[in-house]
Computed example of a mutant assay.
Amino acid sequence: MSYVMPEDFVTKMIDAGEAKVFMATRDTLIRAFMAGAILALAAAFAVTVTVQTGQAIVGALLFPVGFSLLYLLGFDLLTGVFTLVPLALIDKRKGVTVRGMLRNWGLVFTGNFAGALVVAVMMAVIFTYAFSVPPNEIGERIGSIGEGRTVGYADHGAAGMLTLFLRAVLCNWMVSTGVVAAMMSTSVSGKVIAMWMPILLFFYMGFEHSIVNMYLFPSGLMLGGDFSIGDYLVWNEIPTVLGNLVGGLAFVGLTLYATHARTAATRRPADAAPVAPAPAAAPREPETLSMS
């Protein structure tokens, strides 16, 4: 795979963040909607595989297919713009403002949620034959996921909230690493391989991804999960969004920017001998022209 050096792909990260700030509202919403829908389908696929095989690792191995597809199609996730867009602001790109950044985040959040919710309704209809029968085994699993990852945290109070927040931080550390990893290669195969590894890690470890949860929790409510919309917002979605912001920006965006876009001066060893200035060239004697 054609490898792109860090100083080059970090420039691409800043350029991408700048482009997203100035993208038209229509395009931002469409790309965010499709990203949320594709990731939701991937989550439904991973849960289905896990239930049918009884092996969580199989579902985790296959989940990154959705992330890879949406990235290659040029769609946007909130977790990605959390990492990329602030870099354009920090780099003082012309016309990039805090207001423009927040506008982008708001539009992407809205589009992601709409896409994930549409898929949640479709899959709930499929799992219940249009709500005419109880949910099948896969639907029951989705309901239990929503219950365990809302009231399950609430049962532990502040300790549960801290655990939820840290799982969200770690999630976007890995997801944003996947976004950046795709910029390390100029080939499709290289991009997919680089993305696959951190996405597999986050999903198998059960970290909290705000867009995946936009599918799992509304779907869980429709499929009989014993939790409320308030439980979902307070004990999952809001802390997860905040944790995703911290994880992607602090551990991926800012670290790469600081060390590759704003690299500090190179240090010399303390005992290194000073470099002597080059000796001045001796003046040349004027040439004597002889006439014959």
Rank of each mutant, 00 (worst) to 15 (best):
A265F: 12
T255Q: 12
I238Q: 08
F251A: 08
G243W: 08
G243K: 07
G247T: 07
L233Q: 08
D231Y: 08
G253K: 09
T263A: 15
L254T: 01
E237K: 00
A264I: 05
G230P: 01
I238W: 08
T263D: 11
P239M: 07
G248T: 12
L245Q: 02
L245G: 02
L249H: 03
I229L: 15
N244C: 11
F251Y: 14
A258K: 14
Y232R: 00
H260M: 06
P239S: 06
W235H: 09
N244E: 09
A250R: 10
F251E: 02
W235G: 10
L245M: 15
V246C: 07
V246F: 11
A261K: 14
T263K: 15
G248L: 11
E237R: 01
N244I: 07
E237I: 07
V241N: 03
S228C: 00
W235P: 03
A250M: 15
G247E: 12
G230Y: 08
L242T: 03
G248M: 11
R262S: 06
S228H: 13
A250N: 03
A265W: 12
L249W: 11
L242Y: 00
A250Y: 14
P239G: 04
R262N: 13
N236G: 06
A258H: 15
A264H: 10
A250S: 13
I229A: 15
S228I: 06
L245S: 00
A264Y: 10
T266R: 10
D231A: 04
L249N: 04
T263Q: 13
V234F: 12
G248Y: 11
